[in-house]
Simulated scan of single mutants.
Amino acid sequence: MRVLVTRPQPGACETGVRLAALGFEPVVVPLTEIVPLAAAIGADVIDAVAVTSANAIRHASPAIFAALGGKPVFAVGKRTGAAAREAGLDVIDEDAGDAEGLARRISAVFSAPAYVTVLCGRVRRDILETRLRAAGHRVRLIETYDTLPLEPSDAALAAALGDRPVGGVLVYSANGARQLCRLIERPVIGTKLADATFYCLSARIADALDRVGPDRKKIAAQPAEEPLLALLNVHIGL
């Protein structure tokens, strides 16, 4: 089965490799792109570090890593934890799963008020900082990257999709879902996705696919790629 991957690079190609290993035919068409920001870090007190994505690590500067050296790091998931470790950070927790879990785990270790530095993207929900502040912590945000929409041309879409239909679509973000809804209106892609099932990282992302019927949307058990690919496997096997 052909599976459309809509996440930004370099994650899109990484997902494509994983899909091919599982026996699927990946079709990589990123609908958003990650761009680095010139983030700086001061000499503020740091009790703990929270990292919301691997992209936050990929685009952080050496000066940021130097300032965070030796500080306990809470990563949202194992892939983010692996990226933080590779950058030389001291990861003590990588099993939160989402922003709410990240806030709970930090509060379980540190009494308020703790000074928490958050490495994150500019485009995000404010759940983590809101939960941490509500718990009495002091939060400093360091935005290391931005997420921008992509508008592939009809020619680029036709070249990527070819002549055969796509059976599944992996949707990783609400921004990507909204981009996808706009693209579905274009015949060059809409006809290829006419019978596709959309596999979403979360219910919020599925809700953003407002041009897709509920019977064509599946939601991962947890907001991570492993459960998403497991869902794809299980659904195809039924």
Results as ranks from 00 to 15, higher is better:
Val109Trp: 07
Val234Tyr: 14
Gln9Asp: 08
Lys218Glu: 06
Ala96Ile: 01
Ser107Phe: 15
Val28Arg: 08
Ile189Asp: 09
Ala159Gly: 04
Asn55Leu: 01
Ile142His: 00
Val73Gly: 00
Glu86Pro: 00
Ala38Tyr: 07
Asp210Lys: 06
Ile46His: 06
Leu232Met: 02
Tyr199Glu: 01
Pro62Gln: 01
Arg2Tyr: 15
Leu68Tyr: 00
Arg2Gln: 14
Thr197Glu: 11
Ala112Phe: 07
Ala224Ile: 03
Phe24Cys: 14
Arg125Thr: 08
Val27Gly: 14
Arg216Ser: 10
Val234Thr: 14
Leu150Asn: 07
Arg58Leu: 09
Ala194Cys: 10
Ile57Phe: 06
Asp207Thr: 12
Ala48Pro: 05
Leu150Asp: 13
Thr130Gln: 12
Val29Arg: 08
Arg18Asp: 08
His137Lys: 05
Leu238Glu: 15
Ala50Asn: 09
Ser111Met: 05
Ala160Leu: 02
Gly81Ser: 15
Leu119Lys: 09
Arg124Asn: 08
Asp207Phe: 08
Asp154Gln: 05
Ala56Gly: 15
Glu86Cys: 14
Glu94Ser: 14
Ala103Pro: 02
Leu141Trp: 03
Ile41Gln: 03
Gly97Trp: 02
Ala38Gly: 10
Ser153Val: 09
Leu102Glu: 09
Ala224Phe: 02
Val27Lys: 10
Val73Trp: 00
Pro10Thr: 02
Glu100His: 13
Ala50Gly: 12
Glu129Cys: 15
Cys13Tyr: 05
Ala112Cys: 05
Ile34Arg: 13
Ala196Val: 10
Arg204Met: 06
Leu102Gly: 06
Val188Thr: 13
Asp98Ile: 04
Ala208Ser: 13
His59Pro: 04
Ala99Tyr: 13
Ile184Lys: 15
Val45Thr: 12
Leu141Asn: 03
Val91Thr: 03
Leu183Cys: 05
Thr197Asp: 12
Lys78Ala: 15
Ala159Val: 10
Ala135Thr: 13
Glu14Pro: 01
Lys78Arg: 11
Ser107Ile: 15
Gly69Thr: 05
Ala83Val: 04
Gly42Ser: 06
Leu238Thr: 12
Glu100Asp: 11
Pro113Cys: 04
His235Val: 08
